[in-house]
Amino acid sequence: MKGKVPAWLIKLKSLELMDLSQNRLVGSVPGWLGTLPNLFYIDLSDNLLTGELPKEFFHLKALMSQKTYEETEKNYLQLPLFVKPNNLTANLQYNNLYYVPPAIFIRRNNLTGSIPVEVGQLKALQILELLGNIFSGRIPDELSNLTNLERLDLSNNNLSGRIPSSLRQLHFLSYFNVANNTLEGPIPTGSQFDTFPKSYFEGNPLLCGGVLETSCTAPSPEPAEDDEFRKTLVIGIAIGYLIGFSSVILVCARQ
């Protein structure tokens, strides 16, 4: 499939699962996707999408709370189909459509800008994968509102700042990957963060602590030889000036 995300999809008010991955879709992620009331599974991975993620995209009613998600009509249960979605790892055994989780996959595109804080509204979301884009700015603290989140992959972007310590509140989080960004500061400790491997944090030269086994306290730099020379020179000039000034006073006093 080529071109933009088809505009006629906005008419499918009963749409629950949408997989448009591995195509040649261009343009931006349309904000109107957030108006589809029953949509809880979106996969736009491996396309050519550009621009910023619109805030409206994260207004998905079916993901606003666990209650609204559970009240969503699961019409696909009537279909005698068995699948294993491409984006789910071997650790998540979703072989029947009944077990397809609330998820957003927008991996390996060319999306820019920051991750909208509105993502924190989707409290029923279990999987969020935005890896392989060009997202910048901080990791939103609002992600800590996603108390059902099990998998979060933000690797291979240009994210900066610190990893929010509030993410330790995500007690179901079993996968957290932020490798190859420009993050800095200490890796949160405690809770599930003590179980994540080193590879999930590598590629961030300014990250420290945790499994990286690097100190977060920079050692005091030793004075450079040039600095010592400058100090000696300044002291010498000051002494010379005082001696010269004293000589002038002595001459004046004799006169």
Rank of each mutant, 00 (worst) to 15 (best):
N148D: 13
F57T: 00
I249N: 03
G113A: 08
S199V: 11
P102D: 09
L53F: 02
T35N: 00
T217D: 14
G190Q: 14
S215Q: 10
P85K: 08
A124V: 07
K13H: 09
P102E: 03
E16W: 04
N47L: 01
L207T: 11
F196C: 14
L207H: 09
E56N: 01
L159G: 11
M64A: 07
E16V: 04
K11W: 04
G113P: 05
L60F: 05
Q121F: 03
I104Q: 09
L170Q: 04
N157H: 09
L154S: 10
Y99G: 07
L39M: 05
L122F: 03
H59A: 02
T147D: 10
F201I: 07
I106K: 01
N75E: 09
G51D: 01
N148Q: 15
L9M: 12
P54Y: 06
P101C: 09
P80V: 06
F57I: 01
L39D: 00
D43P: 02
V211M: 08
N133M: 08
F40N: 00
T189Y: 09
S136P: 01
E70W: 09
N75I: 11
G51H: 03
R230T: 13
T35W: 00
L79F: 14
E184I: 04
I235T: 07
I239V: 15
R162V: 10
L206F: 09
K198I: 08
K2A: 02
V211I: 11
Y41G: 00
A103S: 15
T147V: 12
L143W: 11
K4E: 01
T232H: 09
D43K: 06
G236A: 14
N204M: 04
G203L: 11
N145Q: 09
L60W: 11
L36T: 00
T35E: 00
L81G: 03
G161K: 12
N87D: 12
Q192H: 12
V234R: 13
D141F: 04
I237E: 10
S28T: 05
D227K: 08
P221T: 15
P30W: 02
I10L: 02
L250G: 11
Q192M: 14
G244A: 12
L122C: 04
C252A: 10
R168C: 15
L154Y: 07
Y94L: 07
N204E: 08
L77A: 02
Y200P: 05
I134G: 02
P80D: 14
P6A: 12
I10C: 01
E52R: 00
P186Q: 06
K2F: 03
E16S: 15
D194I: 01
D46N: 14
V248T: 03
T232M: 08
L79V: 10
W32M: 00
S191W: 12
N204L: 10
K4V: 01
Q255R: 05
I249E: 06
N109C: 01
V251T: 06
P30K: 10
Q22Y: 06
I235D: 09
N47K: 03
F82N: 14
V178Q: 14
G132Y: 09
K11Q: 14
E222G: 04
